[in-house]
Simulated scan of single mutants.
Amino acid sequence: MDDKNSTWYTVKRFLLIIAGALLMAFDLNTFVHAGGLVPGGFTGLTLLIKECALRFGGVSVPFSIILFVLNAIPAAISFKYIGKWFTIYSGLMVILTGLFTDWMPAMFIQVIQLHDELLSAVFGGILNGAAICLCLYAEATSGGTDFIAIFISEKYRKDAWNYIFAGNCVILLLAAFLFELNRVLYSIIFQFTTTMTLSGMYRGYQQRTLLIITGKSREVYELIREMTNHAATSFSGIGRYEMAEREMLYSVVSAGEVNALVAAIKRLDPDAFINVLKTEQLNGRFYQHPKD
């Protein structure tokens, strides 16, 4: 795990944010623009406001200005309640995405000239998911509704993603009312592809349950505690094959910690029997790494 106070860690976060912002801006100017898509969250709302201003008011408002205004209050809430550096890096992602989207040279935009809405929705969703993953690997977010969801989750211990999904549905309904229904349907494919890409590439918000049968339960528990800061519960039993006493440790850890932890346990106890289960739902106290 990187030292959060090291220069390399800071440089890596900056590079990931810049790469994520560039990729998202490229996606907005190519696949999203070509397919007339409406992404979820504040990005989709920004595009919707921008198009309404142009179509009904004849005013061309820069993408970045609308995005910055929409993110101002959520960013202030995040800075106060979630974390200073987390918000600063997330804000940097928002700023760079807005500026890159407005300033990206036409020569790069013209690389993608698609006339197929389905291809735009699928590949645009993949690029969008990859851009968000880069941002998450930098321990930041792409702003907007992510600020709101994390704030509600950490302050009130409630899952806010259903509310975010409802907000996205409202944006899509407005787009369907104002523009064309097929744009909305392709936008749903775009959002679904984004979600699937995120699920496959980033596992930071997923958990895994470990069932470990070992003769070195105390040492294995200390290892789990040291590597993940998670605890474990032990159960005593009888191994029927050898009719010998055994202990089973039950622990839930973050999905991204599993491979390194299992390898360390096997080095400590080569005879350990480890079953890794996907955790669908978790209630109760679970250690979350601090945002700062």
Rank of each mutant, 00 (worst) to 15 (best):
S187G: 05
T43E: 11
F273R: 05
A34W: 13
K84W: 14
R203A: 13
I132N: 02
M104K: 04
E154K: 14
S254L: 13
L178D: 12
H33I: 07
K4P: 10
V122T: 03
I112V: 15
V184S: 02
M196A: 15
I171P: 11
M24G: 04
G239W: 12
G41A: 10
R157D: 14
L174I: 05
A25L: 05
S78Y: 06
V184W: 01
I148N: 02
L114H: 04
G204S: 11
D27S: 09
M93K: 06
R218K: 14
G237N: 08
Y9M: 07
F108K: 06
F14I: 14
G98N: 09
A160V: 08
F286S: 07
L99I: 15
E180V: 04
R285H: 03
E242V: 13
P270C: 01
F56K: 02
G200V: 10
I126Q: 01
I49G: 03
E180T: 13
A75E: 04
E257K: 06
T46W: 05
F190H: 13
T141A: 07
R218Q: 13
L127S: 03
Y156M: 02
I212K: 00
S153G: 12
L54D: 15
D146M: 09
S60V: 12
A160L: 06
R183I: 09
G124H: 00
R240A: 14
L28T: 00
I95G: 10
Q281I: 14
A149L: 08
V11C: 11
L114P: 01
V253C: 01
I224T: 00
L70A: 03
L37I: 06
F63H: 01
T10C: 12
A244E: 13
Q113R: 15
A76E: 01
G124S: 00
D292I: 12
F192C: 08
S199T: 09
V69A: 13
R157N: 15
L114D: 00
S254D: 13
M243K: 15
V122A: 03
T195C: 12
P270W: 00
W85D: 13
K278S: 15
S251P: 06
H33P: 00
P74D: 05
L118Y: 11
P39W: 03
R208Q: 03
I212A: 04
E280V: 08
I152F: 05
E280T: 07
I126W: 03
A176Y: 07
F179E: 05
G129N: 02
I17D: 06
F56Q: 02
I274E: 05
Q281R: 12
R240Y: 13
R285Q: 15
M196W: 03
A53K: 00
I213H: 10
I212E: 02
